[in-house]
């Protein structure tokens, strides 16, 4: 049971940090650069993409046995385009200000490589629940990095934090950061920082687990665990 829960949650957590779409997989770079002129814009764009990703992942995973291999790409594109148009229409009705800011990039969610990549590599091979979890994980990771980038660019370029004026930044704000050039620069440098920080943390966790493991392992326990491991492997082999 615990293993099952872990298996279900695994795509969720790995999508946010380990397989972060923006900084690790470098997918969906167009919206990452274009709409992150403020933190709020990044947040809305991320959430819109997450919605499309979760829905299309669920539908594609449901239809994975029906969709013929030869025409799979047009089928995926159809599903994704449907949901992204729905998001566009809903946004136009209920959030007109945000719709005006996103403009073209709301329609362009269709060609965001994250969606097609997840459809091809995950949801077309897995059942519905893990696919939805994967969608939520990757989507939240994407939202997080877009918001983060938006906040940095907004803070440095306009001297505001989620639209609130930061007093001491007003005299030293550098407009270049909300221009296209600053977008590329911030993205590059944040990619380095992300990999530096997350890489260090991952290494620490790995080391800690390793050391911990050896500390608790006395020969008797070790033998017991080996036995369990063998049993588990045998049962898994039987399933196949």
């Amino acid at each position: 049971m615990r293993q099952k829960v872990k298996d279900t949650l695994e795509p969720l957590t790995s999508g946010i940090i380990k397989d972060n779409a923006t900084f690790r997989l470098v997918l969906g770079t167009c919206p990452t650069l274009a709409v992150t002129t403020s933190g709020l814009n990044g947040l809305y764009m991320g959430l819109a993409t997450t919605f499309v990703l979760v829905c299309s992942n669920a539908i594609i995973s449901l239809l994975r046995k029906i969709i013929p291999r030869k025409v799979r790409i047009p089928c995926y594109i159809l599903v994704i385009a449907t949901f992204s148009t729905i998001v566009e229409m809903v946004m136009r009705k209920f959030l007109p200000a945000i719709y005006d800011v996103m403009g073209l990039f709301l329609s362009l969610i269709v060609v965001n490589c994250i969606l097609l990549a997840r459809a091809e590599s995950f949801s077309s091979l897995n059942p519905v629940l893990p696919s939805v979890m994967d969608g939520i994980g990757i989507g939240l990771g994407f939202t997080m990095s877009l918001t983060l980038m938006g906040l940095v660019r907004e803070f440095l370029g306009a001297g505001t934090f989620f639209g609130l004026v930061v007093p001491f930044m007003q005299n030293i704000k550098m407009t270049v950061f909300i221009l296209p050039a600053g977008g590329f620069m911030v993205f590059g440098i944040m990619m380095v920082l992300y990999n530096l920080v997350v890489g260090e943390i991952e290494k620490k966790i790995h080391d800690y687990k390793h050391r911990h493991y050896h500390a608790i392992t006395n020969p008797l326990l070790k033998a017991q665990e080996d036995e369990e491991q063998a049993k588990r492997e045998a049962s898994m082999g039987g399933d196949k």
């Binding site: 221009l179 050039a181 600053g182 590329f184 590059g188 380095v192 530096l196």
Partner: peptide, 21 residues
Amino acid sequence: ERFKGFPITLVAASLIAMGFA
């Protein structure tokens, strides 16, 4: 080492974009 690959490419693109601005 950390800048190899995408990051340094992005920084280069940033400088080109400054020119085009």
